[in-house]
């Protein structure tokens, strides 16, 4: 494979070292910290995974999908249905696979749509799935909610850690590979990409489906912590919007930015929810508005422009 020096994904030798150190620290966390921290970290992992998987496809291609909730929810329902039938790791994989297949079908039917039409369709689709599941449960099974086989917080934490490591590595390598190049080309001129020999339909559908795998596996894992689910919990549209907001907040073009955005906003939401339960949404909303108005490049963009400013200042001084 040809390595492309893109500037954005620097082939920095420190990255693997830092990454391994962070994974090791995360692996030791439940041993040294209290259960609350472990659960809170699990929560952060969930949002990082769905943000990364959303941004892997929607970031470079500019096909803004708001169907994450559908794939996440499918994972949750897979967990509810298959939780008693097979061991936990298998349930997680199955959740990913079911979401993958669904995304493949969705991709085949929607990825010919462009821009706004694609976005609206993905939103409509997740709502459709939610209402379909609700209808099915009420009419066919005669109930609304379901119990999910519960799993302890520690195994859930480690499962999420594994999914997180796989997702980050996958995003990193895809971004630097020829597929990353193809995805970015599609985002900037689909017609030119097509005429330069990229099978745009295949690239889009495959990558879209793979990102759904991660969201589905995450859903399957998390369902075991909630124990009770119903369609409005599993297919909560917030799971579609949060990855978009978190990626924009952190910086849509960089993996580091997406991780920071997801982590900061998740922790912030937890903090606000416990400290200011009545004003939580209000404060959260104001912060988001301010960031989007004043930091178009997200946190990473702010960091970059600060670095640039410092560099020009030192140049002027010398």
């Amino acid at each position: 494979m040809n390595s492309l020096s893109t500037g954005k994904y620097l082939p920095n030798p420190r990255i693997p070292v830092l990454f391994s150190a962070a994974v090791l620290a995360a692996a030791l966390l439940p041993l040294i910290m209290d259960p609350f921290t472990t659960i809170s970290a699990t929560n952060v992992f969930i949002y990082i995974v769905i943000t990364l998987s959303w941004a892997l496809f929607s970031g470079p291609t500019q096909y803004i999908s708001i169907a994450t909730a559908a794939f996440f929810g499918i994972g949750i329902y897979t967990s509810a249905l298959a939780g008693e039938l097979m061991p936990f790791p298998l349930v997680v994989c199955l959740g990913g696979v079911v979401s993958f297949v669904l995304a493949l079908l969705v991709g085949l039917s929607t990825l010919r749509l462009k821009g706004m039409y694609f976005t609206i369709f993905t939103f409509g689709l997740s709502e459709l799935i939610r209402h379909f599941v609700l209808w099915w449960e009420v009419v066919m099974t005669g109930t609304v909610g379901r119990w999910v086989v519960s799993v302890d917080p520690i195994p859930v934490y480690y499962t999420m850690l594994v999914i997180l490591v796989v997702t980050i590595s996958f995003c990193f390598f895809i971004g630097r590979s020829r597929y990353g190049l193809a995805l970015r080309s599609i985002g900037q001129s689909e017609e030119a990409a097509d005429h330069m020999g990229i099978n745009i339909t295949a690239v889009k559908i495959n990558v879209f489906a793979i990102t759904a795998f991660f969201a589905g596996a995450t859903g399957s894992t998390m369902a075991t912590r909630w124990t009770y689910i119903d369609p409005s919990i599993a297919f909560n549209p917030l799971f579609s919007f949060m990855p978009v907001l978190m990626a924009i907040f952190g910086g849509i073009g960089s993996i580091t930015g997406q991780i920071i955005g997801a982590a900061v906003l998740t922790l912030l939401a937890d903090l606000l929810l416990t400290e200011f339960p009545y004003y939580y949404m209000l404060i959260y909303g104001i912060i988001l508005v301010v960031v989007i108005l004043f930091l178009p490049g997200g946190i990473v963009g702010l960091w970059d422009s600060m670095k640039k400013r410092r560099r020009t200042e030192t140049n002027e001084n010398t």
Binding site: L4, T6, G7, R178, L181, R184, Q188, A192, M196, G197
Partner: peptide, 25 residues
């Protein structure tokens, strides 16, 4: 002109070299 504007000139040309050619990479 339909170039990939947020990519470097080399990356633009790489797209043609990798994908536009039978022998790929």
């Amino acid at each position: 002109v339909k170039t990939f504007n947020k990519m470097t000139a080399l990356e633009n040309v790489m797209v043609g070299a990798i994908y536009g050619h039978k022998h790929g990479g």
